[in-house]
Structures are given as structure tokens and as C-alpha cells.
């Protein structure tokens, strides 16, 4: 199946969703450069992991549904998987950073909860 088989509305919708999602992910990555401290920087990639991911997966769902002529919803599984795993990675990373900062006695170490 070639991309040319898509109807016009689907092509525009897929392109718009993919571009918006990629733009949001890129802004999140730029946050890795622009934000000054580690704890601020951890917030940045969540942009790509939430809205950016959702929009690109939506583009993929629209694309393959329009190309195959039936609903293709398997990309929802990637979304579900990312939604469940991102909190685990970020909580573990935040805790590791907090532990290291506290044991080093850094001035910007987080207070006790």
C-alpha cells in the first residue's frame, strides 16, 4: 500500500497531527537545554511522553485506519504502555537524584517529605 492511496482529508489530518506531536516533543527536548537545574529538566520530556506521544499515535491510527479501510487501533497499546511506565521511570529517577543529592549534602537537595 502506498501513501498516495489516502483520501485528501486523511492526508492533511495525519500530517497536521504528526507535525504537532513532533513539535511538542521537540519543545520538550529543547527544555533539556534551556532549563537550569536537574529537577526542572525532568519536567521537560513529559511533554513528549504525554501530548506529543498521543498526537503522533493518533496520526498513526488515522493513517492506517484510512489506508486499510478498517479501524486499526493497535497503536493505543503503545500509548497505554507509555502512560503506565513513564511515572515509574521518572519517580525512580527523581528518587535516585534526591538520594544522591542528599547523601552529597548539596544545597539544592530536596527536603524530607
Amino acid at each position: 500500500m502506498s501513501p498516495g492511496d489516502l483520501p485528501d482529508w486523511a492526508a492533511w489530518l495525519v500530517s497536521a497531527l504528526a507535525l504537532a506531536g513532533a513539535g511538542i516533543s521537540l519543545v520538550g527536548a529543547v527544555g533539556l537545554i534551556r532549563l537550569k537545574t536537574f529537577y526542572e529538566r525532568v519536567h521537560a520530556p513529559t511533554l513528549g511522553a504525554t501530548l506529543g506521544m498521543a498526537m503522533i499515535l493518533a496520526a498513526s491510527i488515522v493513517y492506517f485506519s484510512a489506508a486499510d479501510g478498517r479501524p486499526v487501533l493497535r497503536d493505543l497499546l503503545i500509548g497505554l504502555f507509555l502512560t503506565v511506565t513513564t511515572p515509574i521511570t521518572l519517580i525512580l529517577l527523581g528518587r535516585a537524584a534526591a538520594y544522591r543529592d542528599r547523601s552529597d549534602g548539596n544545597a539544592n537537595a530536596p527536603p524530607d517529605p
Binding site: L6, A10, W12, A18, G21, A22
Partner: peptide
């Protein structure tokens, strides 16, 4: 045409994601 819209839109989207990967690699 639909093919052209997709070629440009998806190509640009992929380029932006690769740029995001480059920034992450820099970090």
C-alpha cells in the same frame, strides 16, 4: 495531492524528532 502532503508533513515531523534525539544525545 495527498501523497505530497504526507511526504512533506511526515518528513518534517521525522526531522523534528531526530533533532529532539540529537538534543537528548547532547544532554
Amino acid at each position: 495531492s495527498a501523497a505530497l502532503v504526507l511526504a512533506y508533513g511526515l518528513g518534517l515531523a521525522q526531522a523534528m524528532l531526530v533533532l529532539a534525539m540529537a538534543i537528548a544525545a547532547w544532554r
